[in-house]
Every structure is written in structure tokens, then in C-alpha cells.
């Protein structure tokens, strides 16, 4: 192993990420190379300093107690993980059987709805259900991503121009901060092979995705679709077709839908 390769391998060796063979090779080089030895000592000194003097903040007892209590309550009541999964489960759920989405480059696979039921209905999947599934998937991806937006809103004038030239549909962008729905920003996301503008709002702790839909991809039904505490509501932004995806309750969804509908 020459010194250049060794220096690339050095942090991996130090962090325990080299396999046994590579580690042996590196150690053989280390025996004869003072430069690499010093570099290794420096890394170790830095770690020691951090472990000694950058104290690991331990969780306050109060927080721990609070969470234990919350967990106990959940266990007793049975957590509402699938509150609406029953005989009335929407048909599109069937298609969602065991869908694993690869989350970004991190490769964290996330299984969405692993209901094995209704497998026979797979063939009947409509455009409607496919779209709903894609919108949920997009929303969940955004929740798991480092940032749910590609452009951060300072006001609506930064978001609207960002979409222009990037995508066919120019969305109408409004901030409803005064009404409690802050415009966070926007992104472009995929639903199937459609590229859609997504406006991202926040209401309290709820993240809200507003997918702006082309006329050809309007939601087939005007009904709410719900799963795992998340909901899709078909809405209009002024006259534009759109869909809201969030974990807000029905009342908040309706209030937000009204604000969007009234927007010009």
C-alpha cells in the first residue's frame, strides 16, 4: 500500500470501516510511515478531546418520564396506527400491498402499507388509486428527506419564479401565514411519470404538501383518502386542480382547502 492510498484509507481504518485484510495492509504501511502515524495520532487526539470535552447531553429525566408515560398510554389504548384500516379501506390501498420505497441515496428502504389483503384487486387499480399512492409516497419521501423543499420561501415571490422554466404548470403561490399556514417553500416531485410542482406549507407541527395537478390528472373522486393518519384531499387553488397531503385532522384540512380555493 503506498502512502497516497494509505492516507485515503486512514480515516476508514480509524473509524473501523476497513475489513480485516485491508486493515492488515494499512497497518503494514503504518509500521514504516511516520507521516501516516502522526495523522492517525491527530485523529485520535481529536476524538479524545471531543469525547472528554464536548459533553454528551443526556436527556432530562422529565422528558424521559413524559415519553414513558406517553408510550404506556399508547400501549394501553392501542396506538392508532391504522385507524381507518377496516372493511372500508379504499381500493387503492390494495395496490399498495408491500410497496417498498427506496428513500434517496441513503438507501433506507421504507415499507409503506404492507397490507396483503385484496391482492386480487391489483389488476383493477385505477389511475385514481395510482395517483393517490404516488402522492402519499412523495409526501412520505419528503418527510424522510433532509429537507422537504428545494426552494425555501422567504415570501411567495421567491417560490413562484423558481418553478418557472423548470416545469410546465406555473402554480399559483400564496402564503397563508396570517391564517396559520406558513409557506415553507416548493419542490418538484414525481407522481408516476408526472413531474408536479409541490407547494409546501407548515401548520403547527404538520407538514403540508400541495400537489398542483394538470387537468389530465385530476383526482377522479372528490372524496378524502386516508391512511395511517395521513390524508389526501382533492382541492382547487383558485381554478387549478390540486391535492393536499398531510397528517392534519379533517377540520384543519377543510380550513386550508377553503383558503386555497379562495386564492386568486
Amino acid at each position: 500500500m503506498d502512502c497516497k492510498i494509505a492516507r485515503d484509507a486512514l480515516p476508514l481504518y480509524f473509524d473501523g470501516e476497513l475489513d480485516r485484510t485491508a486493515s492488515r495492509e494499512f497497518e503494514a504501511h503504518l509500521d514504516g510511515c511516520a507521516i501516516c502515524r502522526v495523522a492517525l495520532i491527530e485523529l485520535d487526539a481529536l476524538r479524545t478531546t471531543l469525547r472528554q470535552d464536548a459533553p454528551r447531553h443526556t436527556a432530562p429525566q422529565l422528558l424521559r418520564k413524559r415519553l414513558e408515560k406517553f408510550a404506556a398510554t399508547q400501549a394501553r389504548e392501542g396506538a392508532p396506527i391504522h385507524p381507518r384500516r377496516g372493511g372500508s379501506a379504499p381500493r387503492w390501498l390494495a395496490h399498495a400491498a408491500s410497496i417498498a420505497l427506496a428513500f434517496g441515496a441513503g438507501g433506507m428502504a421504507v415499507t409503506l402499507w404492507n397490507s396483503p389483503r385484496h391482492a386480487s384487486e391489483l389488476a383493477q387499480t385505477s389511475m385514481h388509486s395510482q395517483l393517490a399512492r404516488d402522492l402519499f409516497a412523495s409526501h412520505w419521501r419528503a418527510l424522510a428527506a433532509a429537507s422537504p423543499v428545494d426552494v425555501i420561501s422567504t415570501d411567495r415571490h421567491t417560490v413562484k419564479p423558481w418553478f418557472e422554466g423548470k416545469i410546465g404548470i406555473a402554480p399559483t403561490v400564496h402564503d397563508f401565514a396570517e391564517q396559520g399556514f406558513d409557506l415553507v417553500g416548493g419542490r418538484i416531485d414525481y407522481a408516476g411519470d408526472l413531474r408536479l410542482p409541490v407547494l409546501v406549507y407548515r401548520h403547527g407541527q404538520h407538514l403540508i404538501d400541495v400537489f398542483v395537478l394538470p387537468d389530465t390528472a385530476a383526482m377522479a373522486s372528490a372524496a378524502t383518502i386516508a391512511e395511517s393518519g395521513y390524508r389526501i384531499d382533492p382541492v382547487k387553488i383558485g381554478t387549478q386542480n390540486a391535492a393536499i397531503v398531510s397528517d392534519m385532522d379533517a377540520g384543519e384540512m377543510a380550513r386550508f382547502a377553503q383558503l386555497l380555493a379562495a386564492a386568486r
Partner: peptide, 8 residues
């Protein structure tokens, strides 16, 4: 706890 089933 709500999104337990996203762990895979």
C-alpha cells in the same frame, strides 16, 4: 410511534 411501519 405513529410511523412504526415505515421501519424496514
Amino acid at each position: 410511534t405513529r410511523a412504526a411501519d415505515t421501519y424496514a
